[in-house]
Design a protein around this nucleic acid. Structure first.
Length: 783
DNA sequence: TGTGAGTTGATTTTT
DNA sequence: TCAACTCACA
């Protein structure tokens, strides 16, 4: 079909170069669509091209909704769509984010206020512990974890406290029946939700408000759901409710990659999609464009052992590639060392770059030895997860202040910070305060306002609490300021920074560095959301980020992550470690056929991330709680086509095949030449800050050290210049002003020439705001 | 009230 | 292995 050149250019871009199957999916417009996409089959390409095509067909972007499971996936989709279509107004994001947004609008429908807090797992756990105590429940045969999981399961299956019915004689069920209502009540009292509530509340909202449901159905006429195999009942209900009048629902997924059953994901959703939606068009994307034939065969053989699946034929036109390696190491240490040595060898030989490699493991705890080994071989790496940035104590402390400022009913936040830093409000006083609050049915903060009236409270404690409330109110005056400024004030006025600065401990210095990162994150947020008054949104964003979001594809580092986090990614060389019985499959999943299949899928996901080379390994001995224990190889290994793989026992002395890299010389260099190691180590550390943009969360080898280095270096170079660069000024810094004398920077906000600093001067405690770039402020002399 | 030593108990995966 | 929690003491 010939049209004018200008008009035809775009459609041609979008539809060109697609296989018949892909084209079928991309050009599908109305009605339900199921895309069964095997690994590496170009799924993201199909999805983005299809959205572009919808837009091309004149469908307004506002009517399109694309739901993903991770922010990373959403960002990736956005980026790729942006290359196809200018400025799409399509809403793309995670289920949880979408629900949070909807819930803010309709909070009152479910008994919340719009400024509700989102509690993370730890917050929710605390609240659950209180609920357990409240109900006087003693756990004998269950853990709090188990109870939390059961409640989460109920919520994911749309069981509200009223609807929950335990199986008869089921111990855990009986506990849940008692505690679940109390827990939910507390959440409501605190004007808070947990992660599961985001979905549950929205599902409820849609079910109980026909008119609202119809309105939203009409608004989101074209819905896409990525990773549909991982949806749970609540998510299913939401998507379903929005696709009744306009059943233009397109889902993509792969039953073989469903790895979130433990989170309530229901494989039936995808397996029975065709029953749910009559007239569905099914497109199968089976050709793999990622992996070599050798890798794909291994993946295929493994997954064939699953019974509950849709048979799919994986094939590729890619080259055969080297055989998949299966190595047995004596110990976990040898495993880690040898992998690091192999990578180092390849990198030094110039054959590969660090970023070409990924190491996957079943549990986070397994990352430690690998980290050590990589560090020993001076290889830069990024580790996804570990201790998540937003889960760190200092970050949670500061955020708790913000949470309480945003939602004064958030008792969990108050409990967290009422005595942090220490202000002489001890456990006993807090307990009395809580008791008073409980009796009067007040949020803790309200109770604290009346501390003078609480009889049980000693004079000193009452006064300390009153001071805390005064501090809170003072900070409250700044809630509409830019977030970075608010965080700065919190750090200064609460004395939090001062305590850390005065501390000698290494740990606290690291905390300071982390807080510096939080300030950077706040600053970046302010830049994206100018004008201030977006505290709530900032908190929401920080609650809903996941650790996998921290992974950066651009950085030249070896990637370490769990198999779960690996989904959706791709690397030339992949190592999967600890393929041992009890770890993969995990022992908690070993004895249940359904769970075992999920473990097999997990391994399948890991294998199919590799495009060129794959190594599976296990060790004869592995440390378990500090003790070396003999291991048993994973039964999954027996299911692989071992006759065509490179199966090797490893002694460390044997002549090694050429792919092993130069193990011997490497080991010698490290052992013999300690000074060289140190030198290279320093190099690595100095490189670090540049390689990692400020706001990104990852466990760096030594945040305190690295950021100390930049700051000091920064200061030295900048100070020698005639004009002081604005970037010199940091939160908490002591500065000099020709007219007002010395003072402390208590807050900073804005950027470039508009960057403002609020300085509190020592002489009269007055606060003044300066445009940093044009002020006469100078950093005070450091002795 | 805060601190430090000592004990205990737990470790799957994540929005 | 390690972090969180308890208990005794200042």
């Amino acid at each position: 079909m010939e049209t004018t050149a200008a008009a035809s250019a775009r459609p041609a871009d979008i539809l060109v170069g697609l296989t018949p199957a892909q084209l079928q999916a991309v050009s599908h417009v109305a009605g339900p669509l199921l895309i069964l996409a095997g690994p590496g089959s170009g799924k993201t390409r199909v999805v983005t091209h299809r959205i572009a095509n919808l837009l091309q067909q004149g469908i307004p972007g506002k009517q399109i909704l694309a739901l993903t499971f991770t922010n990373k996936a959403a960002d990736e989709m956005k980026a790729r769509l942006a290359r196809l279509v200018p400025l799409p107004t399509v809403w793309m994001g995670t289920f949880h984010r979408f629900c949070a947004r909807l819930l803010r609008q309709y909070a009152s429908y479910v008994g919340l206020e719009e400024n509700f807090s989102i509690y993370d797992v730890e917050d929710a756990r605390r609240m659950l512990a209180e609920a357990l105590a409240d109900e006087g429940v003693e756990l004998t045969h269950a853990t709090p974890d188990g109870v939390a999981h059961a409640i989460s399961w109920a919520k994911n299956n749309l069981l509200t406290p009223e609807k929950y019915e335990p199986r008869r004689g089921h111990y855990l069920g009986g506990i849940v029946e008692k505690v679940y209502p109390a827990y939910q009540n507390r959440l409501l009292q605190a004007n808070a939700v947990d992660f599961d509530d985001l979905l549950l509340h929205v599902a409820t909202l849609l079910r109980e408000n026909a008119e609202l449901r119809a309105r939203l159905d009409d608004r989101y006429r074209y819905i896409l759901v990525d990773e549909y195999q991982d949806t749970n009942l609540a998510q299913y209900a939401i998507v379903r409710a929005l696709s009744i009048d306009h059943p233009n629902l397109a889902v993509t997924g792969d039953p073989d990659q469903s790895i979130y059953g433990w989170r309530g994901a229901n494989l039936s959703n995808i397996l029975e999609f065709e029953k749910d939606f009559p007239n569905v068009r099914v497109v199968r994307l089976e050709q793999n464009y990622r992996s070599t034939k050798a890798i794909l065969r291994v993946a295929d053989e493994l997954i064939r052992h699953n019974v509950r699946r849709k048979q799919k034929d994986l094939f590729t036109d890619n080259p055969e590639g080297p055989p998949v390696r299966l190595i047995t190491y004596p110990t976990q240490r040898d495993e880690a060392d040898h992998i690091a040595a192999t990578i180092a060898g390849q990198v030094q030989a110039g054959r590969r770059r660090p970023r070409d490699f990924a190491i996957f493991y079943r549990t986070n705890a397994l990352s430690r030895q690998l980290e050590h080994a990589l560090r020993d071989h001076v290889l830069p790496y990024q580790i996804v997860n570990g201790l998540e940035f937003y889960q760190r104590k200092e970050i949670k402390d500061v955020l708790a202040y913000l949470h309480l400022l945003n939602n004064s009913r958030s008792d969990v936040a108050l409990l967290r910070i009422i005595n942090v830093p220490a202000r002489k409000i001890g456990k006993a006083s807090v307990a009395r305060l809580a008791e008073y609050a409980r009796m009067k049915g007040l949020p803790l903060l309200e109770a604290a306002r009346r501390s003078g009236l609480i009889e049980d409270l000693g004079k000193g404690a009452a006064l300390a609490i009153a001071r805390f409330v005064a501090l809170y109110d003072r900070l409250g005056e700044s809630v509409h300021d830019p977030v970075e400024e608010l965080v700065g004030r919190v750090l200064t006025d609460t004395g939090y920074r001062e305590v850390l600065e005065n501390s000698e401990s290494e740990e606290d210095q690291e905390r300071l560095a982390n807080i510096e990162e939080l300030l950077t994150a706040a600053r970046e947020f302010d830049i994206r959301n100018p004008g201030g008054g977006h505290l709530e949104q900032f908190l929401e964003e920080s609650s809903l980020v996941a650790d996998t979001d921290a992974w950066e594809s651009e950085v030249d580092r070896v990637t370490l992550m769990t198999l779960h986090a690996a989904k959706g990614l791709e690397f030339p060389c992949v190592f999967i470690v600890a393929v041992e019985n009890g770890l993969l499959p995990h022992e908690r999943s070993m004895h249940d056929e359904e769970k075992l299949e999920e473990e097999r899928r997990l391994m399948f996901v890991g294998i199919t991330r590799a495009s060129e080379e794959l190594q599976l390994s296990h060790a004869d001995y592995r440390a378990f709680r500090g003790l070396a224990c003999p291991t048993v190889p994973s039964p999954f290994l027996m299911e692989l086509p071992r006759h065509e793989m490179d199966c090797l026992g490893f002694t460390g002395r044997k002549t090694t095949p050429d792919w092993v890299g130069d193990l011997e010389p490497q080991a010698h260099a490290d052992a013999d030449d300690a000074s060289q190691l140190v030198d290279r180590d320093e190099e690595f550390v100095q490189e670090d800050p540049d390689a990692v943009p400020g706001s990104k969360r990852k466990r760096s080898t030594s945040p305190a050290l690295t950021s100390g280095l930049i700051t000091a270096a920064d200061l030295l170079t900048k100070q020698s210049r005639p004009r002081v660069s604005p970037s010199v000024f940091k939160h908490g810094m002591v500065v000099d002003h020709p007219d007002y004398g010395p003072g402390t920077i208590i807050a900073l906000s804005g950027e470039g020439t508009k960057r403002n600093a609020v300085v509190r001067f020592f002489s009269d405690q007055s606060e003044r705001t300066f445009r940093v770039a044009f002020s006469d402020l100078t950093p005070a002399e450091v002795e």
